[in-house]
């Protein structure tokens, strides 16, 4: 079943065409990777799906309903959560309060009548942050803050999780741990994951399918193996003149 449908999405910033006629679908239960060089339009696409930027053309559908034109909070309530590449914790709140806030306002706020604190701790436990629950969110390390982004997104009770480079800047050991975490939460929360990642091997490891953007255009879509063998992708990644 199609969960997320991207139809003819285009986005212009003045004269710059950041996305052009992008079409694809993400199916229920899949993990789909989004790959592309810097400036390929990956984060812009996430911002359009989450409602932070309106597209210039095209429609985003989630479970058949049109999301384009809705506010970010409405899209959150529809069941889409995102993390930010540049982490954005709530300042002046502890780690636990950050997650509690997401539970309090997210789409799944009435899903359970367990105390807020316990629900938050459960999620923090899953991402490996429970020991830092009472720390101010600003005091976390980068890896901690990336985990908090994931925890807060989970707190809203999403069906679709948009992960924007949650492993960038982490050590190999931390990346391995994050991969395990993502697999575990995917199974546990019955999630569909749409993930941006720079490191091709990490993305291939995790994804059922990969979509490749280049200068705002989708140039390839397929299984990790198909993508690795795709000529256009190889040209862009290994033979092209832009990294």
């Amino acid at each position: 079943m199609t969960l997320l449908q991207i139809e003819k999405i285009g986005k212009s910033f003045g004269g710059l065409r950041a996305l052009n006629d992008v079409n694809f679908a993400v199916n229920n239960g899949e993990t789909v990777g989004l790959m592309g060089a810097n400036g390929a339009g990956k984060t812009t696409l996430f911002s359009i799906i989450a409602g932070h930027q309106p597209p210039t053309d095209g429609i985003v559908r989630f479970k058949g309903d049109q999301m384009t034109g809705k506010r970010p909070d409405q899209i959150c309530h529809a069941g889409i959560a995102r993390t930010f590449q540049i982490v954005r914790p709530f300042a002046r709140m502890t780690v636990r309060e950050n997650v509690e806030t997401a539970i309090l306002f997210g789409g799944a706020r009435h899903a359970s009548n367990q105390p807020l604190e316990i629900r938050a701790k459960d999620i923090l436990d899953q991402v490996g942050l429970v020991d830092q629950s009472e720390m101010p969110s600003g005091a976390l390390t980068l890896s901690g803050r990336k985990k908090l982004e994931v925890a807060r997104a989970l707190g809203t009770g999403p069906e679709l999780l948009l992960l924007d480079e949650v492993m960038a800047g982490l050590t190999p050991a931390e990346v391995a741990k994050m991969l395990d975490t993502l697999r575990a939460i995917k199974a546990d929360h019955k999630l569909t994951i749409f993930i941006i990642e720079h490191v091709v091997s990490t993305l291939s490891d995790l994804s059922d399918r990969i979509i490749v953007l280049h200068h705002g255009v989708k140039i390839a879509e397929g299984t990790p193996r198909e993508i690795a063998e795709n000529k256009d992708v190889r040209t862009v990644y290994f033979g092209g003149d832009d990294t």
């Binding site: 989450a50 409602g51 932070h52 506010r71 970010p72 909070d73 959150c76 309530h77 959560a81 995102r82 930010f84 954005r88 914790p89 709530f90 300042a91 002046r92 709140m93 509690e100 806030t101 997401a102 309090l104 306002f105 997210g106 789409g107 706020r109 807060r152 997104a153 707190g155 809203t156």
Partner: peptide
């Protein structure tokens, strides 16, 4: 209150506040 928590979240990061479902 929950409303107050929302206001504090807006101070913490307005974009994140929208993203977790707060009608900012």
């Amino acid at each position: 209150s929950t409303f107050g928590r929302g206001l504090v979240a807006i101070q913490g990061d307005e974009t994140s506040a929208e993203t977790v479902g707060i009608p900012v």
